[in-house]
């Protein structure tokens, strides 16, 4: 188990280090998120129209999943330079550790992006996002993890595909739909200041989704890479 976790962290640390050095995906994804948040705020004017604030959860997650796709496109594409994916497949690294390492690094980058954009979102949508920050953070972590585990698996599937930038969202969005619906519902409830109440069921769904697809991805990745 220790070896598995060490391998997982080795992959995640390598990916984070290379991304923080060249900032290829992170800068594009962050710019995209900020532009989307800014443009939607002008389109809907949430300050004068209180009902629009109820859409804010959906708007936020639209920005996050499109930005997340930009991050996930690089996840396995990063390994295609110098055939580094071959090095990983030929090494004693387990498929599960490779999958989790990639998912951890992508999820951390997505969370950084989310944390960086929340203050701007609060300003433009007149939303007090700090009022239930603990619950909001839980939803962001569970939602981002669910999105990145699916995205990581399909990033491996499309890694050697010339049309991977097009293929990845087409494969990921339908698969993550249950998790995204849960995220939008929960985020809207949290941002409007309502109690969670029946929405706890969405939280359970999100948790179950994460567990199932994390296990599935860890088991399937090796077969995907050797297919």
């Amino acid at each position: 188990m220790t070896r598995f976790l060490r391998q997982t962290w080795t992959i995640a640390a390598k990916d984070l280090r290379t991304e923080l050095r060249n900032k290829e995906a992170l800068s594009a994804a962050l710019s995209f998120t900020l532009v989307v948040i800014l443009l939607f705020s002008f389109a809907f004017d949430p300050v004068s129209n209180v009902e629009v604030r109820e859409l804010s959860g959906g708007l936020l997650w639209i920005a996050y999943i499109f930005a997340g796709i930009l991050l996930l496109n690089r996840s396995f594409a990063r390994e295609s330079a110098n055939d580094c994916l071959d090095a990983l497949v030929a090494s004693p690294l387990s498929g599960g550790a490779l999958f989790l390492g990639k998912a951890v690094s992508s999820c951390l980058l997505l969370l950084v992006l989310e944390m960086a954009s929340l203050p701007l979102f609060g300003v433009f949508y007149s939303v007090n996002w700090t009022q239930n920050f603990g619950t909001l953070l839980l939803v962001l972590v569970l939602g981002s993890w669910g999105f990145t585990v699916i995205g990581t698996l399909f990033s491996a599937v499309t890694a050697n595909n010339r049309l991977r930038e097009l293929m990845l969202p087409l494969l990921v969005f339908p698969m993550t739909l249950p998790a995204l619906i849960a995220c939008v519902q929960l985020t809207t409830v949290i941002l409007t200041g309502d109690p969670l109440g029946d929405s706890v069921a969405w939280l359970k769904l999100l948790f179950g989704f994460d567990v199932i697809f994390t296990l599935l991805g860890a088991v399937l990745l090796e077969s995907v890479l050797l297919a």
Partner: peptide, 18 residues
């Protein structure tokens, strides 16, 4: 077997940013 094989392939299996 993975630990008992070392390979020099066509691609160099190196990370440019490291």
């Amino acid at each position: 077997h993975a630990a008992s094989i070392g390979m020099v392939g066509h691609g160099q299996w190196l990370y440019d940013d490291l």
